[in-house]
């Protein structure tokens, strides 16, 4: 029973969140911060698979987010919104509520496939050379999207607000808050199952000694493909949620700066710590919001804070440990297994 406490707690939290958003207890601004937090949790936790657990150095995580955002946006606009290019909605609005998760997952699926762009070179290449491949992949994806006039090119793509409105027409609920919360939970859930299985721990073995891993019967290529596809797929889901939250996407929002943010969250939380990733995503989002009034100076202060943090706690907030390792009483409620 106690093992279920965490799940029950989360359900209560989600319901409370949805209810308070529904009855206007938290205003739109706070809602948007919470959604951003959720998206950031997915991003940092999913990048942690690669940069933390597997010990590779992927600097182009936003590329996969971009793929997921565009694919899901185009699909949902095609299905549920009027668009000068894509025409009238193909499906009745009431289906949008049912199909939105599917659309987001398709976005994630395509992003996962695009993750092969990085996974396959990783068979032969490691470390800094792979880092370049990921940076190049980031540039290639953005540049490709910007050159596709059909989907708006450099002007971006919009119409997702209509999709959210279609959901509202079914029932007036804070849909995006619900979807983002579910998405974040789903991602952390999947990642936890992956990294705590003997299968997924193969990634940690690759990190610590790839030669030994291969010789001890771990199919390193297979694990790499699985890890990269899971990571980029979840980034795609994050992109899908991000796009529908704002109702508008632009390739430049997925540039190398966004990838940098993802990396910062991973290293801030600690490589190979899932709870660290979640925690750092929350803290990082809050930090950015608190400092928002400073405008451009924010972007001087945030890096400075991080530089200082690296000096005093070079292993990140959590190192490679999980919350229960610090607070043993948590083990009663939450086992990392």
């Amino acid at each position: 029973m106690k093992q279920r406490t965490l799940t029950i707690g989360l359900v209560i939290l989600f319901v409370a969140l949805a209810v308070s958003a529904q009855f206007g207890l938290v205003d739109r601004y706070i809602q948007s911060v919470i959604m951003l937090m959720g998206v950031n949790i997915i991003l940092s936790a999913s990048l942690n698979i690669i940069n933390g657990y597997m010990g590779e150095f992927s600097c182009g995580h936003a590329a996969f987010m971009c793929v997921g955002a565009y694919v899901s946006s185009i699909l949902s606009v095609l299905l549920f919104a009027d668009n000068p290019f894509l025409g009238a909605p193909l499906l009745p609005a009431y289906l949008s509520v049912v199909l939105f998760p599917v659309v987001a997952l398709i976005g994630g699926g395509v992003a996962a496939v695009s993750g092969l762009l990085v996974a396959i070179p990783s068979f032969k290449t490691r470390g800094d050379y792979l880092a370049i491949i990921t940076i190049a992949a980031n540039y290639i994806v953005i540049s490709a999207v910007e050159n596709l006039e059909v989907i708006g090119g450099p002007r971006g793509f919009m119409g997702m607000k209509q999709v959210v409105r279609a959901m509202d027409s079914v029932a007036k609920l804070p849909w995006m808050v619900i979807w983002v919360a579910l998405g974040a939970w789903f991602s952390v859930f999947l990642i936890r199952r992956f990294v705590s299985s003997t299968y997924g721990k193969g990634a940690v073995a690759i990190n610590q000694d790839e030669v030994a891993a291969e010789i001890m019967s771990i199919n390193t290529n297979k694990i790499k493909v699985a890890a990269f596809m899971l990571s980029s797929g979840l980034a795609g889901v994050a992109g899908a949620l991000f796009a529908h939250q704002y109702g508008y996407v632009n390739a430049q929002s997925f540039n190398i700066l966004k990838s940098t943010e993802c990396m910062v969250m991973v290293y801030l939380g600690g490589m190979g710590s899932l709870s660290g990733s979640v925690l750092s995503a929350v803290l990082f989002t809050l930090l950015l919001e608190v400092l928002r009034p400073l405008q451009i100076i924010k972007w001087v202060i945030v890096p400075l804070i991080l530089i200082l943090l690296m000096q005093f706690r070079p292993e990140g907030i959590m190192g490679n440990r999980e919350l229960p390792d610090f607070f043993p009483w948590m083990r009663k409620f939450y086992r990392f297994k």
Partner: peptide
Amino acid sequence: RKGAHRLYVVITALMCGLVLENGNLA
């Protein structure tokens, strides 16, 4: 000196770059 993981130094470098860029802008 502290023997931090190599990647933390890389992240620090990234952050230094951001400070230079945005500090200049500010």
